[in-house]
Computed example of a mutant assay.
Amino acid sequence: MRLSAPIYHLKRKAKRLSREEGIPLHDALDRIATTEGFSAWSMLAAKAAAITPAGRLFPQFRPGDLVLVGARPGQGKTLMSLELAVEAMRSGHRAAFFSLEYTERDVLDRLRAIGVGPAQFRELFEVDCSDAISADYVVKEMAAAPRGTFVVIDYLQLLDQRRENPDLSVQVRALKSFARDKGLIVAFISQIDRSYDPAVKPCPDLDDVRLPNPLDLKLFDKTCFLNNSEVQFRAAS
């Protein structure tokens, strides 16, 4: 399959089209797909799925892992996290997406952007966009989650924005302990500092994670950083 541009560029083009013409994102995606020779975005996404990084990365995760997915805005960190969640569900596991950034509609639109209809995994996928999201909240909501459940938290730097919530470090440690006890995989979407310069290195790394509050990044078992078409995955040594 040969596309006119990398798929993440096509997704961004569709987002611009959606904004400029005031149409739903899924309609804009379908329009872009037709210019690439596909009848619908779902067809294009299905063809591209076999070569997506998420399909290669997910088998490297283990129950109990704490994962960091980081990128600058517009580089696909949310879509990557959703693609990983889809890989989990395709493997028969549940997935949950906790967002302090998006609405449920936003999340479902982004699922459609990767060619997944909300009804496709209805019994396996949960979206929670409560303003109360914190480590304690996630632990409570996921208390009955079966082993292997893939949990996304969107995003790391927002967890302690409310004064009544514990420090970020305390929350991440609590979620790490919970993930190991329950056999869950917990992935945090993370912002990258504006000082990151792609001219110096192709992808950001742990040194570029934006940390307004202290956090030991060694708590993460796996990391995935993105920039343009580059994806760098690392496991803790």
Rank of each mutant, 00 (worst) to 15 (best):
L3F: 13
A5S: 13
P6Y: 14
Y8L: 12
Y8D: 13
L10Q: 07
L17M: 15
I23E: 06
P24M: 11
D30S: 12
I32N: 09
A40S: 14
W41Y: 11
W41G: 07
W41Q: 08
S42F: 10
M43T: 13
A45R: 14
K47E: 15
I51D: 12
L57H: 02
Q60I: 03
Q60M: 14
Q60C: 04
R62K: 14
D65P: 05
L66H: 00
L66W: 00
A71I: 05
P73N: 10
G74C: 01
Q75P: 09
G76K: 06
T78F: 03
L79Q: 07
S81H: 06
V86F: 07
E87H: 04
E87L: 01
A88K: 08
H93R: 07
Y102R: 08
R105C: 01
R105T: 12
L111W: 01
I114R: 06
P118Q: 10
P118F: 09
P118G: 05
A119T: 10
Q120K: 14
D128I: 03
D131P: 15
I133T: 12
S134F: 04
D136W: 01
D136M: 06
K140M: 05
M142Q: 15
A144I: 13
A145W: 08
P146W: 11
G148V: 05
G148D: 03
L156S: 00
Q157I: 03
Q157N: 03
D160M: 00
Q161R: 10
R162E: 08
D167S: 12
L175R: 02
S177W: 07
D181H: 09
V186L: 06
V186Y: 03
F188M: 00
F188T: 07
S190A: 12
Y196F: 12
V200K: 15
D205W: 01
D208E: 03
V209N: 04
L215G: 09
L215P: 09
L215R: 14
F233V: 13
